[in-house]
Design a protein around this nucleic acid. Structure first.
Lengths: 193, 193
DNA sequence: TTCAAAAAGTGACCATGGTCAATTATAAAT
DNA sequence: ATTTATAATTGACCATGGTCACTTTTTGAA
């Protein structure tokens, strides 16, 4: 009935997370190998999988936490008052999501989340971002003919679209930020209003 | 200097593709195992990887071809004259992209394509779709304050967004088509024009 | 303090995608 | 027909994520 979690287990989990972060800082997300991680952390492979469903689940924790930091930072700043400011405020988020193709892939995979029952940190961050974007729209001189949360969804959609195109051979000609600005102009200020 | 491709190789490649399609028809994309494929096709494993860079490259061919069929079909139909018709016309595309989570993942991964040098079938289909969507906007009673290809990009972005949310635990409450319709209304007919 | 049940941890083992040196089939030149 | 370069194929082998029956540690009750 009861299922008390032992201190030992919490310590092990922390050890795995901190070791993973250290390895990722050195070599990047893509290069992380579970075997390296468990050897460095000094635990058995099975222990890792007792703590994380799979390798992606670990990545989700770490990437989700990073996203949360970035969102929190953006949440501090005043709401942008035009598209250029908005793109500038999004810059740290863009920088992280484009830092590695692998990171973007994990984010996409988990944004359309795992099981219904458990919403992971990345899916949760999408909700948080949605609220942030909605607030921006509400507090800035942007279109008011649609609900703010709908407008926020659109910002998210165009952010993803811009990043995806950045990774795409066909479109790498133009840089990501001007492209996003073009989209957001059309989305948030239709008819050049 | 010359590198003539032998008939034998073409036959082997076709055999691999047709066998793969047959197996996928039976069990779905996700369940395909390279070992099953080569055994059924009667070739060695190495042969498979001589023809396709990796498993994903095979999937890209098959999924890309399917996308091309669907686009071609949609291209036949007259341009939709309102958002409801547009969503209806998009239905086969939505159905395929949501048929398996794995399919959507592959499409996302390859839409932001592989190497700069070679554009794969999926990335190519995104271009084709972009052109189709632009034509729709141009030929229908939709906003004309932005270039048609920009408006087309937005349709693509909201299509992806809607599908991603479908796979997402947080939002499965509402069905995909009404959600897409809401997005497209706001995108294509701002200010309720 | 002792003991049983449950939690945590272990590592040999498996599944599957992918590699590559060696072999065989093909086609062009003689 | 023979030779020769190279395209095509092979399958043993590797890399890496993931499993599970078993062992060790912890905890709480007697």
């Amino acid at each position: 009935m009861n299922k008390p979690i032992q201190k030992r287990a919490i310590a092990t989990r922390e050890k795995l997370l901190s070791t993973a972060r250290a390895l990722i800082d050195q070599e990047g997300f893509e290069a992380l190998r579970v075997e390296d991680l468990v050897r460095t952390a000094g635990v058995a492979k099975g222990t890792f999988f007792a703590h994380f469903k799979d390798k992606d689940a670990l990545m989700e924790q770490i990437i989700g936490a990073r996203l949360a930091e970035i969102s929190a930072e953006a949440d501090q700043a005043p709401a942008p008052q035009n598209v250029a400011e908005m793109v500038a405020t999004l810059n740290p988020l863009i920088a992280f999501m484009t830092s590695e193709r692998y990171v973007f892939d994990v984010i996409l995979r988990y944004s359309g989340a795992a099981a219904i029952s458990e919403i992971g940190p990345i899916a949760e961050q999408f909700t948080v971002q949605g609220e942030l974007f909605a607030r921006w729209v509400a507090q800035g001189p942007f279109r008011k003919d649609i609900p703010a949360d709908l407008a926020g969804d659109g910002i998210g959609a165009f952010l993803i679209q811009s990043i995806a195109l950045t990774f795409c051979a066909l479109h790498c000609s133009s840089a990501i930020e001007p492209r996003l600005a073009t989209y957001l102009d059309a989305w948030l200020l239709p008819s050049g209003a």
